[in-house]
Every structure is written in structure tokens, then in C-alpha cells.
Design a binder for these strands. Structure first.
Lengths: 229, 229, 229, 229
DNA sequence: GATGAATGAGTATTCATTCAT
DNA sequence: TATGAATGAATACTCATTCAT
């Protein structure tokens, strides 16, 4: 391997080091209250060094999101590309993928949704803005594909798969934000896991073909006992 | 008619004047890039005057949200208190109410969700924090009541109504944020109206009693023709 | 009495009302932390009204000092003009006068010394500056006269009476300030009374003619038992 | 000679640079009219830099005083520790020390007395407040020791040495303030030198044992010819 | 005269970013 | 490359003062 390559690898290691530190600090203090000084300290580097790896604070922040979008797309690609799998299983895999992304890094995920809905987005460099936009619509496209295969496979009623993807995405992002809010307002910690599970089931029931003749379909209409009626 | 009352009214008018200006500026520039100077200018007042009506920038920002939460709760109360209405109609009314809230003031609604998921929440005065928390959980409670009446009325399967309310709230907030994001990323403007409609239908189908014996229930399982396949 | 005169009297009453309030607020918060709003509230008037009676905050502050300087000079005049009194008694009366001034209004007295040694002095209107200067040097002159009479009366050694007056004045102001400082630093409250008494005795001993032939002079060389040796 | 040590020295140099500038600006404009911007300009630094060395304006101001208190204590320690010196000489040395402190830095000395008698004192960080308090009472203790040795040595009458120290301190601070006031009111500049000298002599005469049997003691009862009678 | 709402100039402080070493 | 001291632009907030009522 060339010396060039080794340098590149070293450089990437530093970037990750900074990203990890940034993630922690942003999560704890929020974008505005987190200072570059804080992040440098957490990364055990000097403030100046951060600027050797990231153009500015906004781009460092956005980089966090890039990472999780890439991970999401990778996971979705796996689901899509798995051969010889029936549509119903694919949707199960979609759910698992979304879970995984959340568990992979809940904090960065929150950052992603903050970013998407905020002023920061407007201040990015055109290139980074483009990256975000492409990755983001890439995710939607992938989810759309999965829904379409479900429709084509006769699993779902003929909804618009693009809209289904957007609804799923909204549901997901809304729950992540709502969970964060509950953590602040109510100190309630384990909201998302169970709720997302239930939401997914309801959503699948909602779009599923109502197949009166197929008792097997009842399989994933799991009963949800009302807990507090 | 007293002088006291007139003054109070005048004061309220000023508050509204400032809130309207703040809404515009915050929406255009985001919380951090909006300066009090900007808002004062927009309101055609001096910076100092803002502080006669709002303790600080955070509280001015939070006040925007208070307003829409109050409006939401009022609308939900109407739905709840309507007498002699069958459960199915109530849920329809819930949908309409949520629509209305969105249309009442989309921008402030976005502020609300920003606020709920952000650092700002931690910096509010205890009183305002309390107000937000109470109004927010008040909304959830009201939606919960509506779902419970649907369950009691035999309209829905026996899901936990609290969780249903949270899922609906997540879906709603997620869609509002996603819409904003799309507006920035894709210049797509009219996402929410149709999507929320469809999401609501799917959600209702998902939680609905699967009444094989009742062909009439198909009535509101409107078909959603795929638009872009 | 004319209506003119009544008005004048009314006006003076208001001025006093404001001065009393200002004194309290300045003493509690210090010059800079005391706001005109605070003073207005204390005086149960509106901020605007203060400006009908005092040109600005500096002048209001300075007015406090005027009052006590006038009182001091009045008391000193009494001492000077008392006829047929022997020099030794006069000096006793001087001590009593200084005591009285302190007791008349310790807080305003502190204000006076703050004022004399501060930036405020430079910002006064020329008229007020003149008033302060005249009253202040008037006090010095009066004290000088008393010392001179003591010298002429053969009571004291032939020190420069001007300098004696300045030393006395310095001693007095230094003790008042030191007392305030102790109140803040040590919560020590009753410093001045006893200490001034002792200082005065030492001072008189220091300037007194050493009359070896006159045992009567021992009268006011009171023994000061060491308290903590 | 370590790099650590060199940096520390450099840092101290900067602090001094700022202190010198602050001293000039505070003296010229007073605490409130002096802006951090002014001080930065005088120090040929940027405003931000000041905050790398001093937490805030109050602490910068207070730091000026620390320095002179430390110097005073050091000088007093010298006087105390000088071996084999007779009490009378010690008191002479005390006078010299006080002179020196005044000449070392009249402006900072004024700041010290402003500080001690002002609102600023209440806003300091607890640590700095403690430092001031300790140094200040340290000075008093040292002066007390000197008076006690004078009493023990039979030089003075048995006054309470604590109170003597306080009187001396009051006299000194009062004269410094009075001098400043005169500079503003009368443009009179060289008050303190001669007056303090005379005050000291009077004070010593006042507390000295009246030794009728010892004509030699007249030695330092220098005659003070009246200058302006 | 009295009011008190409105003003807007004034400033301490922060922190992203740079650059000499 | 890495540093971290220095920068200085940017801004929330205060409060003495004014003036229409």
C-alpha cells in the first residue's frame, strides 16, 4: 500500500475521532450551546485542528447526519437486494432495518432530523447540501421500492408507494423527535422501541389487503392489549 | 369598559403585534439567526419595547407555541364535547381539527416542534416550561380520550389509547417537519394536505375492527390509487 | 401667604419625598445598580416625575450630599458662633457636631464620600459642581477656624490649622468608608462610634500643648484600656 | 527553563500588560465609564483577549487592588521581621512603608479604597472576595502587631492596638480619597505627602507616653509652623 | 403637574475562526 | 500537521431619558 493511502487512512481516523466527539457534545448541549472548543476538548485536540478536517461548525454538524444516512441506505440496499425473498418478509426486514438505524446511533439520528428541519440546512456549502439532499431522497427512493414490491406482490392495497414511503419516514422522524421531547419533558426514556413496533403493525394492517379468505394473514395482526383502559 | 380593561386590551394588542413580527422573522431566519433587532424592526418598535412584553428571546419564541397549543386544545375540546355523536364521526372530526390547526398557522406549528425537540426547552423560565408541558400533555390526553371512545364504541381494536395518541402525534409532527424539510430541499410545497389525509385513512384502517360481517365498514376504506407507479 | 409660596412649599415637599426614596435605594444598591425606576417605585411616583424635580440621575445623587453638607455647616456655625465659650469646650463641641452629622444620616454621609472621590463628580452640571465645591470647602474653612481659635487660645501647638482641618476631615471620611467596608467584609456593625471617639482623643492629645506645669490638662487624656492585649 | 515555565511567565507578562492598561483607563474614566473596549485598546489587544486573562470586568478591577495589598503586606512584613530594632524605629519604618505603598502606585491605591467601599465588592467571585478580605485583614493584623510592639516596648500608652491599626488605616485611606477629591475639586496636586507626614507625627504624639521626666522624647515632636495663618 | 410606555444608545461577553509558531 | 493564543464581529439586554396624553 502506498504512503498516500496510509496518509488517507490516518486522515479518516482523525475525522472519525472528531465526529465521535462532536456527536457527544452536540447531543448533550445542542447545536448552539456546543462550542468548537468543547468539541476540541472532547476530542483531545486543539480547536484549530478541527478546521483541518471540517470547513466550519455547520459542516461538522452536517457530517454527523451524512454518516447515518449512509448507514441507512446501506441497510436498505441489503433489504432490497436480498434475492428470493417474498414481499412480506421484505417488509419485516424494512422494519428491522429502521430499528437498527435507530439503535446504531439514536443521537445522530436526532441530529439528522434537527438538521433537516432547520436553519442550518440553509447555511451549508452547496456540495454538502447536495450530499444531504441526495442521500435523503435516496433513502426515500429505497423505501418506495420496498413498498412498491409489496404492492406488486399483492401484499398491499394499491396506495402510492412514494407517499407510503413519506408517511413511514414522517412517522419515524416524528417518533424520534417526540421521544426526545418526552425525555426532556417527562424523563420518560423507553418510548420509542415499543411504540414504533406498534405503529409499524398498525401501518401494515392499514395498507394491507383485506384478505378475508386468507386466515394466515392474521399472523401479523398481533393483538395489542390495551394497557390502561 | 374601565380604563384598566382598555389598557389591558391595548397591551394584548401590542403582544400580538410583536408575536406576528416574531413569527415572520423566526420563520425566515430561524431562531439563532433572527435577532431581537430584526424582530423589533419588523414590528416597527424599538428593541427595548420587546422586553416590556417578553422577558427574553427564548420566552418570546416559546410564546409562539403556547398560542397554537391553546388553539389545538380548544379544537379538541369541541370534538370531545359534541354530544350525541357516534364514535366514527368523532374520529373524522379529530382529523378535521388537526387539519385546522395546521392551517391556522403552519409556521408556528413548526416552531412548536422545533421547540419541543431542542435546547431552547431547557432554558425557559420554569413557569413557561410548565405551561408548555401542561398544554402539550393536555393535547395528548384529549386525543387519548377520543381514541378510547372509539375503542369503547367498538370501532377500534383494543389498542392502548395512550399509545395511539402518541403515534398520531408523532405522525403529525413528523409530517410537519418533513414538509418543512422538503420545502427547503425540494421546493415542494403542498405535501402535507394530501399525505396527512392518506396517513389518517391508513391509520384508521390499521386500528379498525376487522369486521368481515360488516360490508358497510368498507365505506371509509377509500381506495388510494397509486399516483406515480 | 401667596399661592406662589404654597406651590413652592409643595414642590419642596416632593423633592424631599424623592430624596428620601433615593437615599434608601442608593444605599441598598449603590449608585450604578440603583435604577431611576427603583427610586420612582420607592417614592411611589412615576419615573418621569423624578425628572420634573431633578435634572438627571447624577444630580439627584449629588443632591443627597448637598443636604448633609448644609447640615454639617449649620452645626459648625453653631459651634463657631457660640459666644463666651473657652477654646477647649469649642473643640469638644466640634467632636459632638461631627458625631451628630454622622448620626443624622450615616447613609447619605457615605454617599457624600463616594461622590467626592468618584467619576460622578466629573459629570455634574457646573452649578451643582460649584455648590458642592463651595459647601465642601466651606466645611473645611469652618473646621479651620475652630482649630485656629484653639491655637490662638494657646490650647494647641502651632500647627497649620488648615492642615489640621484636612487631617480631621480625612480621618472622619476614612472611618466612615472603613466602617462601610467592614460592614460588607466582616458584618461588623458598630465600629465607628467608639473608634471615632478614641481617634479624636488621640488627635487632641497629639496637637495639644504639652503643658507639664498644668496637671488639669490631664482631664481629657482619658485612659484607653487595651481590650485585647 | 522548561517550556511550561516560559509559558507561565509569558502569561504573567500579558496579565501585567492588561493590568497596566486597565489602571490607566479606570483612573481616567472611573469604573463605569471605562469600557472593556477602552482597556483593550489601551493594552493594544482585542476585547476578547481580556477575557482570556480575567473573568470579567469586576474581577479585572479587583485584581488591581490585589496587587497593591500584596505589596503593602510584603512591606509590612519587612518592617516586622527586621531584627534588633527598637520600637520607635519600627514605627518610623511603618510610616516609610505606608509612604512607599502610596508612591508605588497612587492610582491603584485609590481603586482599592473605591473597591472596599462599594457595590463592586458584592459582585466578585467568592474566591476573589476571599482574597481581598484575607489580604485586607492581613494588613490590619500586621499594623496591629507593630502598634502592640510599641506598647509592649513602653513607647505608647496602653491603647488597644487593634483599634490603633484601624484608626491609622482610616486616616490613610481617608487622606488618599480626600487627595483625589481635591485634585478634582481644586486641582490641588501635592496634598498627601506633607499632610500624611504631619498626621503621623500628631498621631504618634497622641498615643505616645507622656514622659515628663524625659526631655529627649521631644526629639520627634517636631514643631509644625503654621503655614497660612 | 403627573404619568408610564416607548425609546435607542450603549456594552459586556461569547465564540467561530485564523495564523504565527 | 498540530497548536492554542488572539481575534473581533456579533448581539441580547439594560436603563436613563423623553413626550404624548
Amino acid at each position: 500500500m502506498g504512503i498516500q493511502e496510509r496518509k488517507e487512512r490516518e486522515r479518516e481516523r482523525r475525522r472519525q475521532q472528531i465526529i465521535v466527539a462532536a456527536k457527544r457534545v452536540f447531543s448533550e448541549k445542542g447545536f448552539n450551546r456546543a462550542t468548537m472548543e468543547d468539541i476540541a476538548q472532547e476530542a483531545e485536540l486543539s480547536p484549530g485542528t478541527l478546521y483541518l478536517y471540517f470547513k466550519n461548525k455547520d459542516e461538522l454538524y452536517a457530517s454527523l447526519s451524512l454518516r447515518i444516512l449512509q448507514y441507512l441506505n446501506m441497510r436498505l440496499d441489503h433489504v432490497i437486494k436480498e434475492e428470493g425473498i417474498e414481499p412480506a418478509k421484505r417488509i419485516e426486514a424494512l422494519k428491522a432495518a429502521i430499528y437498527d438505524v435507530y439503535q446504531f446511533d439514536p443521537l445522530i439520528l436526532i441530529n439528522l432530523f434537527h438538521l433537516q428541519s432547520s436553519e442550518t440546512l440553509k447555511n451549508l456549502s452547496p456540495e454538502l447540501f447536495d450530499d444531504i439532499q441526495k442521500l435523503s431522497s435516496g433513502s426515500l427512493d429505497r423505501i418506495t421500492i420496498l413498498f412498491r414490491s409489496g404492492i406488486d406482490g399483492g401484499l398491499f392495497d394499491s396506495f402510492d408507494p412514494v407517499v407510503l414511503a413519506e408517511i413511514l419516514w414522517s412517522l419515524f422522524s416524528g417518533m424520534v423527535l417526540w421521544e426526545e421531547s418526552k425525555r426532556i419533558l417527562d424523563d420518560d426514556n423507553n418510548f420509542l422501541k415499543d411504540t414504533l413496533d406498534m405503529a409499524f403493525e398498525i401501518f401494515l394492517r392499514g395498507i394491507g389487503k383485506v384478505r378475508e379468505e386468507d386466515p394466515g394473514s392474521k399472523g401479523h395482526r398481533i393483538g395489542h392489549p390495551a394497557s390502561s383502559i
